[in-house]
Design a protein around this nucleic acid. Sequence first.
DNA 1: ATCCTATTGTGAAATTTGACACAAAAAGGT
DNA 2: ACCTTTTTGTGTCAAATTTCACAATAGGAT
Lengths: 210, 210
Amino acid sequence: MIDKIPRPVARRLAVYYRLLKEYSKKGEETISSSEMGKRLDLKPSQIRKDLSYFGGFGKRGTGYNVIDLMKTIEKIIGIDRTWNVLIIGAGKIGRALVNYPGLLQDGFIIKGIVDNNEHKVGLMIDEKFPVEDIRNIRQIIEKRNIDIGVICVPVESAQKVANLLIYLGIKGIVNFAPRTLEVPEDVMIEDVHISLSFKSLSFKMVNREK
Amino acid sequence: MIDKIPRPVARRLAVYYRLLKEYSKKGEETISSSEMGKRLDLKPSQIRKDLSYFGGFGKRGTGYNVIDLMKTIEKIIGIDRTWNVLIIGAGKIGRALVNYPGLLQDGFIIKGIVDNNEHKVGLMIDEKFPVEDIRNIRQIIEKRNIDIGVICVPVESAQKVANLLIYLGIKGIVNFAPRTLEVPEDVMIEDVHISLSFKSLSFKMVNREK
DNA sequence: ATCCTATTGTGAAATTTGACACAAAAAGGT
DNA sequence: ACCTTTTTGTGTCAAATTTCACAATAGGAT
């Protein structure tokens, strides 16, 4: 596609998408960069520039067509398809992610949740989703065509689980464990570090800068 | 304190802290910027520069004293104290955050969890933590000296809850709802957007760039 | 048909952030 | 006491990112 999309642009695209979804639900047909900017606390010029990386789909004088822009961004960020997701670790976070509303809507289908704790295996989540044995992970990944693994295990075993996923051919990982994981070049990883966000907030509060 | 700390530096500090904690547990006395860099996939020069914003606490030829550096970063990011936290919304995520291990360790003390759903009020979490009625939020915030509110409500009511928290004098918010919230200048907010991370991963996988 | 207003798309400037390179200093060996 | 090795701290340069500014153009009004 395009040569090189700046990293921050990629993340903002997802933010734009979310806003567009809201506007499309409200039945709005078009939206301008200045309106988006106001809602997202971003400069309109930045939004226009971001979008221009992928071509010009705005209309001068009018703005952007909400539905069209949504569809375009869907393609760009790859959610015009579905992704099969396996959760590893049936602790609180892992269990909270099963049936997490946003995910399914964006095409992330939770195909299973596994754990190594025999007391947890067999447990039903939301009375319909069983925790499976991690020892069957190979078959689960193969049979259900898992694309993305979500690491929700304690920090001590996070790297081990990552290695296992990589060994089994998984190319995308979302990591909820609070440490940096080492993965090969061709494996994409995204961190959701909850306690980091709290610390970041604490920093802001102590240093009073927005 | 210091004039202006680059935004990315602030976030990396929390990452350094996490690594230092690991090393201190292992009993390591010192750590060098190159060692940190290797573990965190960052250039050593960046780490040194980041730390130099706050003064030079390394020792040439030796590196940094793990404990000293930890204590220093604790002060900088403001976790050399405790923060009282109230969770709003007793859905899955909210309940998962109660007793989330990392938080207490870093000085974030969950002082309560409230909800507006009468079926949830009174429910015990982990057999010891009651869900309280959001109608009592004012008294809870005042009596328990709440510093930070965590928004775990559905996206539709997120802004409303934010407004309520702001009205009651809360200056720090962690937002788990998938939308950008508007807050006044002096209120600090940090977003944990789980589905954004999945989308960001999807983008990386489709565009194969690390 | 022309003017006016709104709003995009984008080259160029400005700003921010990251990398480099090297002098300075600490520690240990000879 | 001096040399060698290691590693920090930082001034300077490079790259990435954001903001600016304005020409281009669509649509509606007169």
